[in-house]
Amino acid sequence: MKLEGKVWRYGDNIDTDVIIPARYLNTFDPVELAKHCMVDIDETFAVNVKAGDIMVGGKNFGCGSSREHAPVAIKASGVPVVIASSFARIFYRNGINIGLPLLEIGDDVEKIHANDILKIDTSTGTIEDVTNGEIFRAHPLPEFVQEISKAGGLINYVKSKGDLG
């Protein structure tokens, strides 16, 4: 998948409580969740985000609760991919399972700034920062995980195979 979009830049340890606060967890409607995405640290995000924009965070992105509402809210905001130095484990699984690509690039993330334009090829993991000319490579995904991605998420994967394996 080839993507191009503008960066929303956040810091380290962005937790699932700020991605989608618990007071909005009484629904699982993606559109409703997207309305409140990031609101506690960035009120402008939900209002101004455009389909195709890219979210970039620092270390341990998505730490905290297991709520899949968090990656769902990001995806429903129109963000097609999240890049971070590292991801929290459950968030990472959830992203893979719902078909939201997550690219881990370590310290290189520091070279990406707010409002930069990125060109991304998710199949090779190549990220080009058009604004400053830098090129980064994400850690490759394990084969099994790529298969889940290709199927469009874990539910479709299980449906097509009739079992998990």
Partner: peptide
């Protein structure tokens, strides 16, 4: 801990 999709599966 896992998310919704892992749990569904």
């Amino acid at each position: 801990g896992v998310g919704t999709t892992d749990l569904a599966v």
